[in-house]
């Protein structure tokens, strides 16, 4: 009897040891073997949170939770979107029908906020160089491209896409609006989408038409920003929220004017002496 008891105790000990070693070895190992752990029930809560449980890639979010902040994998949860989702968000930012934060469904990504400004930068460079070359052709002067346009676009767009939302976030946080930095970045990033078609259409050489386009683009993205930011801003006092709202609109207007005069208006400036 005593023997048996001892034997059982040893067995239990053994089990306990094995279990512990398994647990400790599995936590660092998850980065390598992603697929087997997908089917564990751990991935389900996140599936419910984000709304779509059908996507196997959605469980990236779970595996990266424990990753340190300096690793690349940590940021994978901010890129947890599908092609259709990104397209949907882009469309929703051009034609603001419903609340953008509802469309994001609590899953703000950084894919759009990074690649949309980058696209805008290069589209601005491409369209401005097309406009310049048309100018040069019309005024029969040899065309030389201006790489400083690219530098300027880079500085302007990135500072508007990253520095401004960070600033607004800081301000709203200071006044107790409980803003989400990711949502702010997403708002500003996706809000730039409208400038891509505007920039392409602004190649057309009618000045009034381009003014109308720029105004329409500024209005669309402006309303998009204000509408989605208002729920956050309204948590502060009426006075401060008004000030911040005015600041948002003011910065937006400045961006539109910079784009118009620096990138879309070249045609007028150069062709007038040419003609």
């Amino acid at each position: 009897m005593a023997n048996k008891g001892a034997y059982a105790a040893i067995e239990i000990d053994d089990d306990g040891l094995e279990f512990q070693s398994f647990a400790s070895s599995s936590s660092p190992g998850t980065s390598g073997n992603i697929t087997p752990s997908n089917n564990t029930p751990q991935s389900r809560p996140a599936g419910f949170n984000t709304g779509g449980a059908f996507d196997p890639h959605r469980s990236i979010q779970d595996q990266t939770v424990s990753k340190p902040i300096w690793s690349v994998e940590y940021y994978a949860k901010f890129f947890d979107v599908d092609t259709t989702q990104v397209m949907e968000r882009c469309m929703a930012s051009i034609i603001p029908k419903e609340n953008f934060l509802d469309i994001m469904a609590g899953n703000p990504d950084l894919y759009g906020p990074f690649w949309i400004p980058t696209t805008v930068i290069f589209v601005l460079f491409v369209t401005s160089s097309i406009v310049n070359s048309i100018n040069a052709y019309l005024s029969s002067t040899p065309y030389t491209y201006d790489i400083r346009q690219l530098t300027f676009a880079f500085g302007t767009v990135y500072s508007y896409a990253f520095a401004v939302p960070a600033m607004i976030w800081g301000a709203t946080k200071y006044f107790g609006c409980q803003p989400d930095l990711l949502e702010m970045l997403a708002l500003y990033g996706y809000g730039l989408t409208v400038w891509i078609p505007v920039a392409v259409l602004c190649i057309l050489p009618w000045n009034l038409f381009r003014w109308a386009l720029v105004l329409a683009g500024a209005a669309a993205s402006g309303t998009f920003l204000v509408r989605n930011m208002y729920p956050v801003l309204s948590r502060a006092e009426a006075q401060t929220s008004k000030v911040i709202l005015i600041l948002v609109v003011f910065l937006h207007g400045i961006l539109a004017l910079i784009l118009k005069y620096r990138f879309f208006a070249y045609n007028v400036v150069v062709t007038e002496p040419g003609k």
């Binding site: 996507d55 196997p56 890639h57 979107v81 599908d82 092609t83 259709t84 990104v86 894919y111 690649w115 980058t118 696209t119 290069f122 460079f125 491409v126 160089s129 070359s133 065309y143 491209y145």
Partner: peptide, 26 residues
């Protein structure tokens, strides 16, 4: 990349497009 293939491919196209554009206008 299953249903986010386009998201991974798009930056690649943008990359080559920008360089091709630089070559074209130079």
């Amino acid at each position: 990349l299953a249903n986010r293939r386009a998201l991974g491919v798009y930056p690649l196209f943008l990359f080559y497009f920008v360089i091709a554009w630089m070559i074209l206008i130079s």
